[in-house]
Simulated assay, not measured.
Amino acid sequence: MASSLLLTLSLLISLIVYSLSSPLSSETILDASEILADTGYLSMSLTLELISDTLFPNSHSLTIFAPSDPAFIATGQPSLPLLQFHFSPIPVSLETLKSLPYGTEIPTMFQGHSLTVTSSPSDDRVSLNNVDITPLPIFDDGFLIIYGIREFFDPDFEVRAPESSFGCGFLRTNSFGNASEALRSGGYSLMAGFLDLQVLEIKKSTMMTVFAPTDQVLGNRLGNFGEYSSIFLRHVVPCRLLWTDLVKFNDGAALPTHLGGFSINITRSGGILMLNGVPVYYPNMYISDWLVVHGLRQVLSVPWEGTQEGIAGATDESGGSIEDYTPDYEF
């Protein structure tokens, strides 16, 4: 499964921001160790004090997933790579963890190994590598965040891709709430607003796929209020299409949308899947049993707004070269 590209970008931005701050102080590590010990994570408390100077002496931020004392007893003395697998160089807040879609990868200090989100935004829990984390952080000062887990993560864990249930039909009930929250948390607030306000424009019971442009590019297109409905409806397909479904379409396939007379044409350029000349930037941003959302970096234009001629030499509506934003997947 492709990594969640938006998370990767946000993590890179976070690395830049937090690299400008001071390294984690010994006082912060000591405070965290004391709280770990007081909350029943004595083994991790002692481990943190012992390895902090050598494992992350100059870290500016950190997320730690602390195994319980029984886990340490069952496993014995963990190896250094196994410990590194439980440390991420990014402070990942609980709000962020809850918003991440299934299959999102979170980098760790164990080189070449990432943790994988195995829950979805609609769940009432957060799990990584099929291990639930504590409902609230044990410690959180904005730079160092610690969660508890009942067992050690398995570095050899492999995520199972969500099963495709490609369909164009109707369900009895559904809700846009969780999808809207996922969109807002990822920088797609305007599309979330459309989803909330334009519900009556679409039959509430239909399966659908939403192709969501970012706030930055969509904001540049919102001038005439009368065009809002057109902009929204042209990005909605009355079928549930996972990324694995999209890549199975042949070049030239046309996806009908809720905007009458407007279709989304599938092509490929240099191995990249294109929708009316626009690459999918964030596949499977949100998945439910009736709705899938994919992120875009451009608005899908209607013919009279300009032609779509692929990515060669083109620019996206935020001013950058499309090649700068080409997602890292091929088929």
Rank of each mutant, 00 (worst) to 15 (best):
T108L: 01
D196R: 14
E163L: 15
L197R: 15
T104L: 08
E151F: 03
P89S: 05
Y102G: 00
V92E: 00
F170E: 09
D124T: 12
N129H: 13
F170W: 11
H113D: 02
E163S: 14
L128P: 01
T173G: 02
L128S: 01
S164L: 06
C168A: 14
E158N: 10
G187I: 09
T108V: 07
Q198T: 13
P162D: 04
S120A: 13
G193D: 14
L97S: 04
T96F: 06
I146V: 15
G103C: 08
H86N: 09
P101E: 03
S114D: 06
D123A: 14
F153N: 05
L183K: 12
S119D: 05
N174Y: 12
R172Y: 09
D140H: 08
G148N: 01
V117D: 00
T173R: 14
T173F: 11
N178F: 14
A192Q: 06
S175I: 04
S99V: 03
I106K: 02
T104F: 02
P135K: 05
S185E: 04
F87W: 08
F176E: 04
S99W: 07
T108W: 00
H113C: 07
G186A: 15
L197E: 14
G193S: 13
D196H: 02
L183E: 03
T134F: 05
P135S: 09
I149C: 15
R150T: 11
L197H: 12
T108E: 00
F87G: 01
H113M: 06
I138Q: 00
L183N: 03
F194S: 02
E105G: 01
G112V: 02
D156Y: 13
P121Y: 09
